[in-house]
């Protein structure tokens, strides 16, 4: 069960370390902003400094945009759900007995069967009437146990923080991969909590009942995808106890490592303003200590930037 926590801790540690390095780089360059603004870029070091400042501004904006989007989407969703809130059915109350969820369950009228945990400081569990109708007592209890895990771990809050860092630290794509891993592990951990308390059958049965019907499959709705979905990974875990390890893509690791190394070198030479850098022969120093590290940073920024844009463009295309 500790895997989800560990995944989140590793993500945070990497995010803080990377942020510290990148902020340090930003701070060494800030004094040059005024000079750049008044005189423009005079030589290569100025040009590199200007470009890095642009990258930093992009990162900060992406992070804030992710944060804002999430808060806004959450607020909009909750508003729409609150409008459809119904009194908690007795089936839910009886399934929740002894789960320490008193007053923290909402039931909303919706034809789609769903349940989730929301809000940040004092999270709540939301169930749809369709879900309540479809599940029996034990299955409902399994779903509530699953959500209770998210509630106790404040997963919605963790998610906001993790997504903020993943967006802002786009030059360190490993953070984004760790986010994906954490997203999967928290679901598996929540499942394990439910299994530990009530056994595997109730949870498996609830999951099975909530899967899109086989009829939908025959309608050709379930387009086969090559990779395992979160649900499939959860089923693997429930059925066979199979655990998915963290497999970072070598490209991400290389880009992230390169970007941080590049940033560290640029800090060391103070973005080209240090005396030691000036003293070195420019023929070696400029490509080796300035352009080299800077291009590592830019390579990661381009890759990360493209990844950030992809879901956004997909979402825009999916709109009618």
């Amino acid at each position: 069960m500790a895997r989800a926590n560990r995944a989140f801790a590793v993500l945070l540690a990497l995010a803080f370390a990377s942020s510290a390095i990148l902020l340090a780089l930003l701070l060494t360059l800030v004094p040059r902003v005024e000079q750049l603004l008044t005189q423009g870029a005079a030589d290569t070091t100025d040009l590199v400094a200007a470009l890095i400042l642009v990258l930093a501004i992009c990162g900060i904006s992406l992070g804030l945009a992710a944060l804002f989007r999430q808060l806004l989407a959450t607020a909009v969703l909750i508003r729409s759900l609150v409008a459809r809130k119904v009194s908690v059915p007795s089936a839910v109350l009886s399934a929740a007995v002894g789960l320490d969820l008193d007053g923290r369950i909402d039931v909303v009228a919706d034809d789609r069967p769903f349940s989730f945990c929301y809000w940040f400081v004092r999270p709540r569990v939301c169930l749809s009437t369709a879900l309540v109708r479809r599940l029996d007592h034990d299955e409902l209890r399994a779903v509530l146990l699953h959500e209770r895990y998210h509630l106790r771990h404040r997963d919605p809050l963790r998610l906001v923080v993790a997504r903020y860092f993943a967006a802002g630290l786009y030059v360190v794509p490993v953070v984004d991969e760790l986010l994906g891993f954490y997203m999967l592990q928290k679901e598996i951990a929540a499942d394990e909590e439910a299994v530990r308390v009530d056994g595997v059958a109730s949870l498996a049965s609830a999951l099975y009942k909530l899967l899109p019907d086989a009829d939908d499959v025959s309608l050709g709705l379930l387009v086969p995808v090559s990779s395992l979905s979160v649900t499939e990974a959860r089923i693997d875990r429930l059925v066979a106890g199979r655990q998915i390890g963290l497999a970072l893509s070598p490209v991400s690791v290389a880009l992230s490592g390169g970007a941080l190394l590049g940033a560290a070198v640029l800090i060391a030479i103070q973005g080209g303003a240090s005396v030691a850098f000036e003293a070195l022969p420019r023929l070696y120093a400029v490509p080796g200590l300035l352009l080299g590290p800077a291009s590592l940073l830019f390579a990661a920024a381009i890759d990360g930037g493209l990844h950030q844009l992809r879901p956004l463009s997909q979402r825009l295309l999916a709109r009618p």
Binding site: R69, Q70, F116, C117, E147, R163, K186, E187, V230, E232
Partner: peptide, 14 residues
């Protein structure tokens, strides 16, 4: 983008 931890949000491709 809502920050939710959901039991069923991912249900789908199985």
């Amino acid at each position: 983008d809502a920050a939710l931890a959901a039991f069923t949000a991912e249900l789908g491709t199985v």
